[in-house]
Design a protein around this nucleic acid. Sequence first.
DNA 1: TGACGAAAAACTGTATACAGAATATCTTCA
DNA 2: TGAAGATATTCTGTATACAGTTTTTCGTCA
Lengths: 244, 244
Amino acid sequence: MSTTDRPSQYEKALRGLRTLILNGQFEANTRLAETALAERLGISRTPLRQAMDRLVEEGLLERAETGRCSVASFTMDDIIDAVELRGVIEGTAARLAAERGVEPALIEECREVLAKLDRATAHAGAIDFRAYVPLNLRFHALIAEMCASRIVQREIERANRLPLASPSAFLQGQEVAQDFLDTLPRAQEQHRSLLDAIVAREGARAEALAREHARLARHNLALALEAGPRLADRVPGLQLVSNH
Amino acid sequence: MSTTDRPSQYEKALRGLRTLILNGQFEANTRLAETALAERLGISRTPLRQAMDRLVEEGLLERAETGRCSVASFTMDDIIDAVELRGVIEGTAARLAAERGVEPALIEECREVLAKLDRATAHAGAIDFRAYVPLNLRFHALIAEMCASRIVQREIERANRLPLASPSAFLQGQEVAQDFLDTLPRAQEQHRSLLDAIVAREGARAEALAREHARLARHNLALALEAGPRLADRVPGLQLVSNH
DNA sequence: TGACGAAAAACTGTATACAGAATATCTTCA
DNA sequence: TGAAGATATTCTGTATACAGTTTTTCGTCA
Protein backbone atom coordinates (compact mmCIF):
# COMPACT_ATOMS: atom_id res chain seq x y z
CA MET A 1 0.00 0.00 0.00
CA SER A 2 2.94 2.32 0.52
CA THR A 3 5.75 3.45 -1.72
CA THR A 4 7.88 0.35 -1.44
CA ASP A 5 5.24 -2.37 -1.73
CA ARG A 6 4.30 -3.37 -5.17
CA PRO A 7 0.91 -1.87 -5.89
CA SER A 8 -2.21 -3.81 -5.01
CA GLN A 9 -4.65 -4.86 -7.68
CA TYR A 10 -6.98 -2.19 -6.42
CA GLU A 11 -4.38 0.51 -6.95
CA LYS A 12 -3.63 -0.87 -10.35
CA ALA A 13 -7.32 -0.68 -11.20
CA LEU A 14 -7.70 2.85 -9.84
CA ARG A 15 -4.67 4.24 -11.60
CA GLY A 16 -5.37 2.36 -14.80
CA LEU A 17 -9.00 3.31 -15.10
CA ARG A 18 -8.43 6.91 -14.12
CA THR A 19 -5.72 7.19 -16.74
CA LEU A 20 -7.95 5.65 -19.39
CA ILE A 21 -10.71 8.11 -18.62
CA LEU A 22 -8.57 11.23 -18.35
CA ASN A 23 -6.67 10.35 -21.49
CA GLY A 24 -9.93 10.30 -23.36
CA GLN A 25 -10.07 6.60 -24.15
CA PHE A 26 -13.83 6.77 -23.65
CA GLU A 27 -16.31 9.33 -24.83
CA ALA A 28 -18.31 11.09 -22.15
CA ASN A 29 -21.33 9.03 -21.07
CA THR A 30 -19.84 5.79 -22.33
CA ARG A 31 -21.17 2.84 -20.37
CA LEU A 32 -18.51 0.66 -18.86
CA ALA A 33 -18.89 -3.08 -18.47
CA GLU A 34 -17.02 -4.50 -15.52
CA THR A 35 -16.08 -7.80 -17.06
CA ALA A 36 -14.52 -6.29 -20.17
CA LEU A 37 -12.71 -3.61 -18.19
CA ALA A 38 -11.34 -6.11 -15.71
CA GLU A 39 -9.93 -8.17 -18.54
CA ARG A 40 -8.45 -5.08 -20.19
CA LEU A 41 -6.74 -4.09 -16.95
CA GLY A 42 -5.63 -7.61 -16.21
CA ILE A 43 -7.38 -7.97 -12.86
CA SER A 44 -10.56 -9.49 -11.48
CA ARG A 45 -13.83 -7.71 -10.98
CA THR A 46 -13.47 -7.36 -7.22
CA PRO A 47 -10.70 -4.75 -7.07
CA LEU A 48 -12.05 -3.12 -10.23
CA ARG A 49 -15.40 -2.54 -8.58
CA GLN A 50 -13.61 -1.00 -5.62
CA ALA A 51 -11.83 1.37 -7.96
CA MET A 52 -15.05 2.23 -9.75
CA ASP A 53 -16.75 3.07 -6.46
CA ARG A 54 -13.88 5.38 -5.72
CA LEU A 55 -14.07 7.08 -9.11
CA VAL A 56 -17.80 7.58 -8.64
CA GLU A 57 -16.91 9.25 -5.36
CA GLU A 58 -14.40 11.42 -7.22
CA GLY A 59 -16.97 12.38 -9.81
CA LEU A 60 -15.27 10.80 -12.81
CA LEU A 61 -17.89 8.08 -13.10
CA GLU A 62 -21.63 8.17 -12.62
CA ARG A 63 -23.67 5.25 -11.40
CA ALA A 64 -27.10 4.65 -12.89
CA GLU A 65 -30.05 3.31 -10.90
CA THR A 66 -29.36 -0.10 -12.33
CA GLY A 67 -25.81 -0.12 -11.04
CA ARG A 68 -24.12 0.46 -14.35
CA CYS A 69 -21.35 3.00 -14.49
CA SER A 70 -20.81 5.52 -17.22
CA VAL A 71 -18.08 8.05 -17.81
CA ALA A 72 -19.09 11.45 -16.46
CA SER A 73 -19.46 14.52 -18.59
CA PHE A 74 -19.07 18.06 -17.41
CA THR A 75 -20.39 21.42 -18.41
CA MET A 76 -18.39 24.61 -18.29
CA ASP A 77 -20.43 25.58 -15.24
CA ASP A 78 -19.35 22.41 -13.46
CA ILE A 79 -15.71 23.26 -13.95
CA ILE A 80 -16.25 26.88 -12.97
CA ASP A 81 -17.99 25.81 -9.76
CA ALA A 82 -15.34 23.22 -8.97
CA VAL A 83 -12.61 25.80 -9.31
CA GLU A 84 -14.60 28.29 -7.25
CA LEU A 85 -14.96 25.71 -4.49
CA ARG A 86 -11.30 24.86 -4.55
CA GLY A 87 -10.55 28.55 -4.15
CA VAL A 88 -12.97 28.84 -1.26
CA ILE A 89 -11.49 25.90 0.62
CA GLU A 90 -7.90 26.88 -0.03
CA GLY A 91 -8.93 30.36 1.07
CA THR A 92 -10.21 28.90 4.33
CA ALA A 93 -6.91 27.14 4.90
CA ALA A 94 -5.06 30.39 4.26
CA ARG A 95 -7.33 32.35 6.59
CA LEU A 96 -7.07 29.77 9.36
CA ALA A 97 -3.29 29.72 8.95
CA ALA A 98 -3.22 33.50 9.32
CA GLU A 99 -5.60 33.52 12.28
CA ARG A 100 -4.02 30.64 14.16
CA GLY A 101 -0.40 31.21 13.30
CA VAL A 102 2.02 29.00 11.43
CA GLU A 103 5.09 27.03 12.40
CA PRO A 104 8.19 28.99 11.31
CA ALA A 105 9.67 25.98 9.54
CA LEU A 106 6.73 25.88 7.14
CA ILE A 107 7.03 29.58 6.40
CA GLU A 108 10.70 29.09 5.73
CA GLU A 109 10.15 26.24 3.31
CA CYS A 110 7.45 28.23 1.58
CA ARG A 111 9.87 31.13 1.11
CA GLU A 112 12.35 28.78 -0.51
CA VAL A 113 9.73 27.45 -2.88
CA LEU A 114 8.77 30.99 -3.79
CA ALA A 115 12.39 31.86 -4.50
CA LYS A 116 12.67 28.90 -6.84
CA LEU A 117 9.41 29.86 -8.50
CA ASP A 118 10.81 33.36 -8.95
CA ARG A 119 13.75 31.95 -10.83
CA ALA A 120 11.48 29.83 -13.00
CA THR A 121 9.21 32.72 -13.95
CA ALA A 122 11.62 35.66 -13.87
CA HIS A 123 12.11 36.07 -17.60
CA ALA A 124 8.80 36.35 -19.36
CA GLY A 125 10.39 35.16 -22.56
CA ALA A 126 12.05 32.06 -21.13
CA ILE A 127 9.89 30.51 -18.48
CA ASP A 128 11.06 27.19 -17.10
CA PHE A 129 7.83 25.29 -17.36
CA ARG A 130 9.25 21.95 -16.30
CA ALA A 131 10.37 23.40 -13.00
CA TYR A 132 7.21 25.41 -12.52
CA VAL A 133 4.62 22.65 -12.28
CA PRO A 134 6.00 20.68 -9.32
CA LEU A 135 6.98 23.86 -7.47
CA ASN A 136 3.49 25.24 -7.90
CA LEU A 137 2.01 22.04 -6.54
CA ARG A 138 4.38 22.18 -3.58
CA PHE A 139 3.39 25.74 -2.80
CA HIS A 140 -0.28 24.85 -2.71
CA ALA A 141 0.42 21.80 -0.56
CA LEU A 142 2.30 24.01 1.89
CA ILE A 143 -0.63 26.41 2.22
CA ALA A 144 -2.79 23.41 3.04
CA GLU A 145 -0.33 22.25 5.66
CA MET A 146 -0.15 25.67 7.27
CA CYS A 147 -3.68 25.52 8.62
CA ALA A 148 -2.58 22.51 10.68
CA SER A 149 -5.99 20.94 10.41
CA ARG A 150 -6.33 17.39 9.19
CA ILE A 151 -10.00 18.03 8.42
CA VAL A 152 -9.32 21.05 6.23
CA GLN A 153 -6.35 19.36 4.60
CA ARG A 154 -8.47 16.38 3.75
CA GLU A 155 -11.09 18.49 2.08
CA ILE A 156 -8.50 20.41 0.10
CA GLU A 157 -7.22 17.14 -1.28
CA ARG A 158 -10.74 16.25 -2.17
CA ALA A 159 -11.46 19.58 -3.79
CA ASN A 160 -8.35 19.13 -5.92
CA ARG A 161 -9.72 15.85 -7.18
CA LEU A 162 -12.86 17.47 -8.45
CA PRO A 163 -12.58 17.28 -12.21
CA LEU A 164 -10.25 19.91 -13.62
CA ALA A 165 -10.18 21.80 -10.34
CA SER A 166 -6.66 21.14 -9.17
CA PRO A 167 -4.04 23.90 -9.24
CA SER A 168 -2.23 22.06 -12.00
CA ALA A 169 -5.23 20.97 -14.04
CA PHE A 170 -4.45 23.34 -16.89
CA LEU A 171 -0.71 23.22 -16.56
CA GLN A 172 -0.38 20.29 -18.92
CA GLY A 173 0.59 20.67 -22.51
CA GLN A 174 0.18 24.42 -22.46
CA GLU A 175 3.85 25.26 -22.51
CA VAL A 176 3.42 26.39 -26.10
CA ALA A 177 0.61 28.90 -25.53
CA GLN A 178 2.12 32.33 -25.02
CA ASP A 179 -0.96 33.97 -23.53
CA PHE A 180 -0.96 31.21 -20.97
CA LEU A 181 2.69 31.65 -20.12
CA ASP A 182 1.96 35.32 -19.60
CA THR A 183 -0.26 34.48 -16.65
CA LEU A 184 2.50 32.74 -14.73
CA PRO A 185 4.26 35.88 -13.44
CA ARG A 186 0.89 37.17 -12.30
CA ALA A 187 0.27 33.92 -10.45
CA GLN A 188 3.65 34.18 -8.83
CA GLU A 189 2.90 37.67 -7.55
CA GLN A 190 -0.28 36.30 -5.98
CA HIS A 191 1.72 33.54 -4.34
CA ARG A 192 3.99 36.13 -2.71
CA SER A 193 1.12 38.28 -1.51
CA LEU A 194 -0.65 35.26 -0.10
CA LEU A 195 2.29 34.22 2.02
CA ASP A 196 2.77 37.82 3.14
CA ALA A 197 -0.82 37.99 4.29
CA ILE A 198 -0.53 34.77 6.24
CA VAL A 199 2.68 35.85 7.95
CA ALA A 200 1.12 39.23 8.81
CA ARG A 201 -1.88 37.38 10.33
CA GLU A 202 -4.19 39.13 7.87
CA GLY A 203 -6.83 36.43 7.58
CA ALA A 204 -9.37 38.20 5.41
CA ARG A 205 -6.72 39.30 2.95
CA ALA A 206 -5.21 35.82 2.78
CA GLU A 207 -8.60 34.32 2.07
CA ALA A 208 -9.41 36.83 -0.63
CA LEU A 209 -6.06 36.35 -2.31
CA ALA A 210 -6.39 32.57 -2.38
CA ARG A 211 -9.79 32.91 -3.99
CA GLU A 212 -8.59 35.35 -6.58
CA HIS A 213 -5.65 33.10 -7.29
CA ALA A 214 -7.99 30.23 -8.06
CA ARG A 215 -9.74 32.46 -10.55
CA LEU A 216 -6.64 32.29 -12.69
CA ALA A 217 -7.49 28.66 -13.31
CA ARG A 218 -10.87 29.76 -14.58
CA HIS A 219 -9.15 32.13 -16.94
CA ASN A 220 -6.91 29.33 -18.10
CA LEU A 221 -9.94 27.16 -18.77
CA ALA A 222 -11.20 29.84 -21.13
CA LEU A 223 -7.81 30.00 -22.82
CA ALA A 224 -7.70 26.23 -23.15
CA LEU A 225 -11.10 26.11 -24.78
CA GLU A 226 -10.23 28.96 -27.13
CA ALA A 227 -7.21 27.01 -28.23
CA GLY A 228 -9.62 24.56 -29.77
CA PRO A 229 -9.75 20.79 -29.92
CA ARG A 230 -6.03 20.69 -30.60
CA LEU A 231 -5.48 21.24 -26.89
CA ALA A 232 -8.30 19.03 -25.67
CA ASP A 233 -6.11 16.04 -26.38
CA ARG A 234 -3.32 17.31 -24.19
CA VAL A 235 -5.15 18.55 -21.11
CA PRO A 236 -6.30 15.45 -19.21
CA GLY A 237 -10.04 15.34 -18.82
CA LEU A 238 -10.77 18.31 -21.03
CA GLN A 239 -12.49 16.19 -23.63
CA LEU A 240 -15.14 15.32 -21.02
CA VAL A 241 -16.34 18.93 -21.06
CA SER A 242 -19.31 19.38 -23.35
CA ASN A 243 -20.05 22.23 -25.79
CA HIS A 244 -16.81 22.97 -27.45
CA MET B 1 -31.66 0.91 -4.94
CA SER B 2 -34.37 3.54 -4.71
CA THR B 3 -37.13 4.15 -2.22
CA THR B 4 -39.40 1.36 -3.34
CA ASP B 5 -36.88 -1.46 -3.84
CA ARG B 6 -35.99 -3.40 -0.84
CA PRO B 7 -32.55 -2.26 0.26
CA SER B 8 -29.50 -3.96 -1.15
CA GLN B 9 -27.11 -5.80 1.12
CA TYR B 10 -24.69 -2.94 0.67
CA GLU B 11 -27.21 -0.43 1.95
CA LYS B 12 -28.02 -2.70 4.82
CA ALA B 13 -24.32 -2.87 5.67
CA LEU B 14 -23.82 0.89 5.36
CA ARG B 15 -26.81 1.81 7.47
CA GLY B 16 -26.20 -0.91 9.99
CA LEU B 17 -22.54 -0.22 10.54
CA ARG B 18 -22.99 3.54 10.64
CA THR B 19 -25.70 3.13 13.24
CA LEU B 20 -23.54 0.81 15.33
CA ILE B 21 -20.70 3.32 15.29
CA LEU B 22 -22.74 6.43 15.96
CA ASN B 23 -24.69 4.76 18.72
CA GLY B 24 -21.44 4.05 20.48
CA GLN B 25 -21.40 0.29 20.16
CA PHE B 26 -17.64 0.49 19.71
CA GLU B 27 -15.08 2.52 21.56
CA ALA B 28 -13.03 4.91 19.50
CA ASN B 29 -10.07 3.15 17.85
CA THR B 30 -11.65 -0.28 18.14
CA ARG B 31 -10.42 -2.58 15.42
CA LEU B 32 -13.14 -4.13 13.35
CA ALA B 33 -12.87 -7.61 11.89
CA GLU B 34 -14.77 -8.06 8.67
CA THR B 35 -15.80 -11.65 9.22
CA ALA B 36 -17.34 -11.04 12.63
CA LEU B 37 -19.07 -7.84 11.51
CA ALA B 38 -20.49 -9.49 8.42
CA GLU B 39 -21.97 -12.22 10.53
CA ARG B 40 -23.37 -9.71 13.01
CA LEU B 41 -25.04 -7.77 10.21
CA GLY B 42 -26.24 -10.92 8.47
CA ILE B 43 -24.49 -10.33 5.17
CA SER B 44 -21.35 -11.51 3.40
CA ARG B 45 -18.03 -9.74 3.40
CA THR B 46 -18.36 -8.32 -0.09
CA PRO B 47 -21.05 -5.69 0.53
CA LEU B 48 -19.66 -5.08 4.01
CA ARG B 49 -16.29 -4.14 2.58
CA GLN B 50 -18.02 -1.77 0.20
CA ALA B 51 -19.74 -0.12 3.13
CA MET B 52 -16.51 0.09 5.08
CA ASP B 53 -14.74 1.77 2.17
CA ARG B 54 -17.53 4.28 2.14
CA LEU B 55 -17.31 4.94 5.87
CA VAL B 56 -13.57 5.43 5.55
CA GLU B 57 -14.40 8.01 2.90
CA GLU B 58 -16.84 9.64 5.31
CA GLY B 59 -14.26 9.73 8.05
CA LEU B 60 -16.03 7.41 10.48
CA LEU B 61 -13.48 4.65 9.97
CA GLU B 62 -9.74 4.74 9.52
CA ARG B 63 -7.80 2.24 7.50
CA ALA B 64 -4.39 1.11 8.73
CA GLU B 65 -1.47 0.30 6.43
CA THR B 66 -2.27 -3.37 6.82
CA GLY B 67 -5.82 -2.88 5.59
CA ARG B 68 -7.49 -3.21 8.93
CA CYS B 69 -10.19 -0.74 9.82
CA SER B 70 -10.69 0.91 13.15
CA VAL B 71 -13.33 3.26 14.46
CA ALA B 72 -12.20 6.85 14.15
CA SER B 73 -11.73 9.17 17.07
CA PHE B 74 -12.01 12.91 16.99
CA THR B 75 -10.59 15.79 18.91
CA MET B 76 -12.49 18.94 19.74
CA ASP B 77 -10.43 20.69 17.10
CA ASP B 78 -11.59 18.20 14.48
CA ILE B 79 -15.21 18.99 15.20
CA ILE B 80 -14.56 22.71 15.30
CA ASP B 81 -12.85 22.57 11.92
CA ALA B 82 -15.55 20.39 10.42
CA VAL B 83 -18.21 22.86 11.52
CA GLU B 84 -16.14 25.75 10.25
CA LEU B 85 -15.84 24.07 6.86
CA ARG B 86 -19.52 23.35 6.68
CA GLY B 87 -20.16 27.03 7.36
CA VAL B 88 -17.72 28.06 4.66
CA ILE B 89 -19.27 25.81 2.03
CA GLU B 90 -22.84 26.69 2.95
CA GLY B 91 -21.70 30.29 2.87
CA THR B 92 -20.47 29.79 -0.66
CA ALA B 93 -23.81 28.35 -1.69
CA ALA B 94 -25.56 31.35 -0.15
CA ARG B 95 -23.23 33.81 -1.83
CA LEU B 96 -23.56 32.15 -5.22
CA ALA B 97 -27.33 32.10 -4.82
CA ALA B 98 -27.29 35.83 -4.11
CA GLU B 99 -24.91 36.63 -6.94
CA ARG B 100 -26.56 34.46 -9.55
CA GLY B 101 -30.18 34.86 -8.55
CA VAL B 102 -32.65 32.27 -7.35
CA GLU B 103 -35.79 30.75 -8.83
CA PRO B 104 -38.83 32.40 -7.21
CA ALA B 105 -40.41 29.07 -6.37
CA LEU B 106 -37.47 28.19 -4.11
CA ILE B 107 -37.67 31.54 -2.36
CA GLU B 108 -41.36 30.98 -1.83
CA GLU B 109 -40.89 27.54 -0.33
CA CYS B 110 -38.15 28.88 1.89
CA ARG B 111 -40.47 31.59 3.20
CA GLU B 112 -43.02 28.95 4.09
CA VAL B 113 -40.45 26.93 5.96
CA LEU B 114 -39.39 30.04 7.84
CA ALA B 115 -42.98 30.76 8.79
CA LYS B 116 -43.37 27.27 10.19
CA LEU B 117 -40.08 27.61 12.03
CA ASP B 118 -41.37 30.89 13.47
CA ARG B 119 -44.36 29.10 14.87
CA ALA B 120 -42.15 26.38 16.34
CA THR B 121 -39.82 28.82 18.07
CA ALA B 122 -42.13 31.73 18.85
CA HIS B 123 -42.61 31.08 22.53
CA ALA B 124 -39.29 30.74 24.29
CA GLY B 125 -40.92 28.75 27.02
CA ALA B 126 -42.68 26.23 24.80
CA ILE B 127 -40.56 25.42 21.78
CA ASP B 128 -41.86 22.67 19.54
CA PHE B 129 -38.67 20.67 19.23
CA ARG B 130 -40.19 17.81 17.28
CA ALA B 131 -41.25 20.17 14.51
CA TYR B 132 -38.04 22.15 14.61
CA VAL B 133 -35.52 19.50 13.59
CA PRO B 134 -36.94 18.49 10.19
CA LEU B 135 -37.81 22.10 9.33
CA ASN B 136 -34.30 23.19 10.11
CA LEU B 137 -32.90 20.47 7.87
CA ARG B 138 -35.26 21.51 5.10
CA PHE B 139 -34.16 25.13 5.37
CA HIS B 140 -30.52 24.19 4.99
CA ALA B 141 -31.30 21.91 2.07
CA LEU B 142 -33.12 24.77 0.36
CA ILE B 143 -30.12 27.08 0.70
CA ALA B 144 -28.04 24.38 -0.95
CA GLU B 145 -30.54 24.09 -3.77
CA MET B 146 -30.60 27.82 -4.34
CA CYS B 147 -27.07 27.97 -5.69
CA ALA B 148 -28.26 25.72 -8.53
CA SER B 149 -24.90 24.02 -8.74
CA ARG B 150 -24.66 20.27 -8.61
CA ILE B 151 -20.98 20.56 -7.70
CA VAL B 152 -21.57 22.84 -4.72
CA GLN B 153 -24.60 20.85 -3.62
CA ARG B 154 -22.58 17.68 -3.68
CA GLU B 155 -19.89 19.16 -1.49
CA ILE B 156 -22.42 20.49 0.98
CA GLU B 157 -23.82 17.02 1.37
CA ARG B 158 -20.32 15.79 1.94
CA ALA B 159 -19.51 18.51 4.45
CA ASN B 160 -22.64 17.55 6.36
CA ARG B 161 -21.39 14.01 6.63
CA LEU B 162 -18.19 15.11 8.29
CA PRO B 163 -18.47 13.86 11.85
CA LEU B 164 -20.74 16.03 13.96
CA ALA B 165 -20.75 18.80 11.37
CA SER B 166 -24.29 18.61 10.08
CA PRO B 167 -26.82 21.31 10.97
CA SER B 168 -28.69 18.82 13.09
CA ALA B 169 -25.73 17.10 14.71
CA PHE B 170 -26.45 18.57 18.12
CA LEU B 171 -30.20 18.67 17.80
CA GLN B 172 -30.63 15.20 19.24
CA GLY B 173 -31.61 14.59 22.77
CA GLN B 174 -31.06 18.18 23.81
CA GLU B 175 -34.69 19.10 24.13
CA VAL B 176 -34.25 19.13 27.88
CA ALA B 177 -31.36 21.59 28.04
CA GLN B 178 -32.75 25.06 28.54
CA ASP B 179 -29.63 26.97 27.56
CA PHE B 180 -29.71 25.05 24.31
CA LEU B 181 -33.36 25.85 23.65
CA ASP B 182 -32.50 29.49 24.19
CA THR B 183 -30.30 29.45 21.10
CA LEU B 184 -33.11 28.44 18.78
CA PRO B 185 -34.78 31.87 18.45
CA ARG B 186 -31.36 33.30 17.70
CA ALA B 187 -30.84 30.69 15.00
CA GLN B 188 -34.21 31.51 13.53
CA GLU B 189 -33.34 35.19 13.30
CA GLN B 190 -30.20 34.24 11.39
CA HIS B 191 -32.28 32.11 9.05
CA ARG B 192 -34.45 35.12 8.22
CA SER B 193 -31.52 37.46 7.68
CA LEU B 194 -29.83 34.89 5.45
CA LEU B 195 -32.80 34.60 3.15
CA ASP B 196 -33.19 38.39 3.11
CA ALA B 197 -29.58 38.77 2.02
CA ILE B 198 -29.97 36.23 -0.76
CA VAL B 199 -33.13 37.86 -2.07
CA ALA B 200 -31.45 41.28 -1.95
CA ARG B 201 -28.52 39.89 -3.94
CA GLU B 202 -26.16 40.78 -1.11
CA GLY B 203 -23.60 38.03 -1.61
CA ALA B 204 -21.02 39.03 0.95
CA ARG B 205 -23.65 39.46 3.65
CA ALA B 206 -25.26 36.13 2.82
CA GLU B 207 -21.91 34.38 3.05
CA ALA B 208 -21.03 36.01 6.37
CA LEU B 209 -24.42 35.17 7.86
CA ALA B 210 -24.19 31.51 6.84
CA ARG B 211 -20.79 31.29 8.47
CA GLU B 212 -21.94 32.92 11.65
CA HIS B 213 -24.94 30.65 11.71
CA ALA B 214 -22.68 27.60 11.60
CA ARG B 215 -20.87 28.98 14.63
CA LEU B 216 -23.98 28.30 16.65
CA ALA B 217 -23.26 24.62 16.19
CA ARG B 218 -19.86 25.20 17.70
CA HIS B 219 -21.49 26.85 20.65
CA ASN B 220 -23.83 23.90 20.97
CA LEU B 221 -20.86 21.55 20.97
CA ALA B 222 -19.53 23.39 23.99
CA LEU B 223 -22.92 23.15 25.68
CA ALA B 224 -23.13 19.46 24.91
CA LEU B 225 -19.74 18.77 26.42
CA GLU B 226 -20.53 20.83 29.49
CA ALA B 227 -23.60 18.72 30.01
CA GLY B 228 -21.25 15.87 30.71
CA PRO B 229 -21.26 12.20 29.82
CA ARG B 230 -24.98 12.05 30.48
CA LEU B 231 -25.51 13.66 27.07
CA ALA B 232 -22.76 11.80 25.25
CA ASP B 233 -25.03 8.80 25.08
CA ARG B 234 -27.79 10.73 23.37
CA VAL B 235 -25.92 12.75 20.76
CA PRO B 236 -24.87 10.28 18.04
CA GLY B 237 -21.13 10.17 17.60
CA LEU B 238 -20.32 12.37 20.56
CA GLN B 239 -18.67 9.51 22.43
CA LEU B 240 -16.04 9.38 19.67
CA VAL B 241 -14.73 12.77 20.74
CA SER B 242 -11.74 12.45 23.05
CA ASN B 243 -10.86 14.46 26.18
CA HIS B 244 -14.08 14.88 28.04
C1' DT C 1 10.37 -13.01 35.53
C1' DG C 2 10.72 -11.19 31.04
C1' DA C 3 12.06 -11.02 26.39
C1' DC C 4 12.52 -13.44 22.18
C1' DG C 5 11.02 -16.50 18.59
C1' DA C 6 8.24 -20.04 16.46
C1' DA C 7 3.88 -22.08 15.59
C1' DA C 8 -1.01 -21.35 15.19
C1' DA C 9 -4.97 -18.69 14.44
C1' DA C 10 -7.24 -14.94 12.37
C1' DC C 11 -7.60 -11.61 8.97
C1' DT C 12 -7.45 -9.19 4.50
C1' DG C 13 -7.01 -9.03 -0.69
C1' DT C 14 -8.43 -11.28 -4.66
C1' DA C 15 -10.53 -14.47 -7.83
C1' DT C 16 -14.48 -16.84 -9.10
C1' DA C 17 -19.16 -18.92 -9.24
C1' DC C 18 -23.91 -18.11 -9.46
C1' DA C 19 -28.51 -15.94 -9.32
C1' DG C 20 -31.41 -12.44 -10.60
C1' DA C 21 -31.94 -8.19 -13.18
C1' DA C 22 -31.14 -5.49 -17.25
C1' DT C 23 -30.27 -5.20 -22.01
C1' DA C 24 -30.09 -6.65 -26.62
C1' DT C 25 -31.75 -9.51 -30.30
C1' DC C 26 -34.94 -11.77 -32.84
C1' DT C 27 -39.52 -12.95 -34.16
C1' DT C 28 -44.19 -12.05 -35.02
C1' DC C 29 -48.12 -9.55 -36.30
C1' DA C 30 -50.55 -5.50 -38.01
C1' DT D 1 -42.25 -1.29 -42.70
C1' DG D 2 -42.65 -0.74 -37.80
C1' DA D 3 -44.08 -1.76 -33.26
C1' DA D 4 -44.55 -5.12 -29.63
C1' DG D 5 -43.42 -9.11 -27.26
C1' DA D 6 -40.57 -13.17 -26.31
C1' DT D 7 -36.16 -15.15 -26.03
C1' DA D 8 -31.31 -15.04 -25.48
C1' DT D 9 -27.42 -12.71 -23.95
C1' DT D 10 -25.00 -9.76 -20.95
C1' DC D 11 -24.29 -7.56 -16.78
C1' DT D 12 -24.36 -6.53 -11.87
C1' DG D 13 -24.79 -7.86 -6.80
C1' DT D 14 -23.48 -11.19 -3.64
C1' DA D 15 -21.48 -15.24 -1.56
C1' DT D 16 -17.63 -17.97 -1.01
C1' DA D 17 -13.05 -20.15 -1.52
C1' DC D 18 -8.27 -19.57 -1.12
C1' DA D 19 -3.62 -17.63 -0.70
C1' DG D 20 -0.56 -14.70 1.53
C1' DT D 21 -0.09 -11.55 5.67
C1' DT D 22 -0.69 -10.04 9.99
C1' DT D 23 -1.64 -10.88 14.61
C1' DT D 24 -1.86 -13.63 18.52
C1' DT D 25 -0.52 -17.38 21.34
C1' DC D 26 2.53 -20.28 23.40
C1' DG D 27 6.83 -22.20 24.66
C1' DT D 28 11.82 -21.53 25.34
C1' DC D 29 15.84 -19.53 27.08
C1' DA D 30 18.47 -16.11 29.63
